[in-house]
């Protein structure tokens, strides 16, 4: 599996971003990103120009929209028709997501615990979602210094609860990129796992649909499980049982975010209810950990904890490997 750094929540001058499409692509290149999702508010007007600029720069673009409704913001990729945003009511979300999904859209909940009016207009997720299975992803980390904020810690808990209820929502991060990044701040980056050697829009989308993401403010954290001749990776579904978990930390991947003072301290394996199955100290130099565990729960993710901006913090987290009884 190849892991590519991407940013899945970007704005341009076509909504309230500071960048033209060309400037956004230039910024993505500067930060070493291989792909972006263009998600301007309630418009697809920037798709063509952004894709054209990106192609020349060797960056792939997943075209999308941030449905900026009055009751929450929803990221919809690969679905052009977004005129329904203004009529979306809290009790109509399931019908809307079912329709978007049927038409091939990739659907994510954006910053669900961002404060609503008057701080962030319509930002807070007030939809009455009954069918989370219509969604593909959940933006767990949003904005700058994500894990310092109550809203993202709430998102992490809510997403964990959804996993516990059997919903296989892929976690993503979003800088929610509107303007120049501040070098004093931490930002999360989503890595997408793509089997092919090059990052493509189709590969990015497939990674989200297949649950192959790893979020980080620094090093890339990945995980595999193996038993006998069977192995599974992030996003896969494996039978319950006894596995060797292989955790891998790649500090070289942090190059684009090297300015940030990160101190990894501990890797953890976390399962249903946020229960820690395994924890192990982890210095910069220790890149591999393995442990044998009997898994009888329904999902397991890896986490990297340490110090970010002088605070104890989650630094990186993989999407889960799922486990089932059959």
């Amino acid at each position: 599996m190849n892991w590519f750094p991407v940013e899945l929540h970007c704005h341009t001058k076509h909504s309230d971003g500071d960048f033209s499409p060309a400037e956004l692509i230039e910024q993505a290149k500067i930060f070493g990103l291989k792909g972006i999702a263009l998600t301007d508010h309630n418009t697809v007007a920037g798709w063509e120009e952004t894709c054209s600029c990106a192609e020349k720069a060797g960056i792939c673009v997943l075209p999308g929209v941030e449905w900026t409704t009055y009751f929450g913001h929803m990221l919809v990729l690969q679905q052009k028709d977004c005129g329904g945003w203004m009529d979306l009511q809290p009790d109509r979300i399931d019908a809307a997501t079912a329709d978007l999904r049927a038409r091939g859209g990739t659907i994510g909940a954006a910053h669900p615990f961002e404060p609503g009016n008057p701080v962030g207009t319509g930002c807070h997720w007030d939809f009455s979602v009954r069918h989370w299975e219509n969604f593909h992803y959940y933006e767990v980390m949003n904005g700058e210094n994500p894990m310092e904020k109550v809203r993202n810690r709430k998102s992490l808990l809510a997403w964990t609860s959804l996993l516990d209820h059997g919903y296989r929502l892929t976690p993503t991060s979003g800088i929610d990129w509107h303007s120049q990044l501040n070098k004093e701040f931490s930002y999360a980056c989503t890595y997408v796992g793509v089997p092919e050697k090059d990052c493509t829009a189709q590969g990015m989308n497939h990674a989200i649909l297949s649950g192959r993401t790893s979020l980080t403010m620094g090093p890339l954290l990945t995980m595999e499980v193996c038993r006998e001749s069977q192995c599974g990776g992030i996003g896969d579904v494996c039978p319950n049982g006894r596995y060797t978990f292989l955790l891998h930390l790649d500090p070289r991947r942090a190059e684009h975010w090297r300015h940030l003072d990160l101190q990894p301290r501990e890797v953890r394996l976390v399962t249903n209810g946020g229960r820690v199955l395994f924890q192990s100290p982890c210095g910069e130099c220790k890149l591999e950990s393995s442990v044998m565990l009997d898994v009888q729960t329904s999902w397991c993710r890896a986490e990297l904890w340490g110090v970010v901006r002088d605070r104890e913090s989650l630094i990186a987290m993989t999407a889960p490997i799922y486990f089932s009884q059959t």
């Binding site: 076509h14 909504s15 309230d16 301007d40 508010h41 309630n42 418009t43 697809v44 007007a45 900026t68 028709d81 977004c82 005129g83 945003w85 203004m86 008057p118 207009t121």
Partner: peptide
């Protein structure tokens, strides 16, 4: 601050919104 936006529909298509 207040936020009002303008969105436009042609006879056959949604054209977008000036969300700023």
């Amino acid at each position: 601050q207040n936020l009002l936006t303008l969105s436009l529909f042609a006879p056959d298509a949604y054209l977008g919104s000036a969300h700023r």
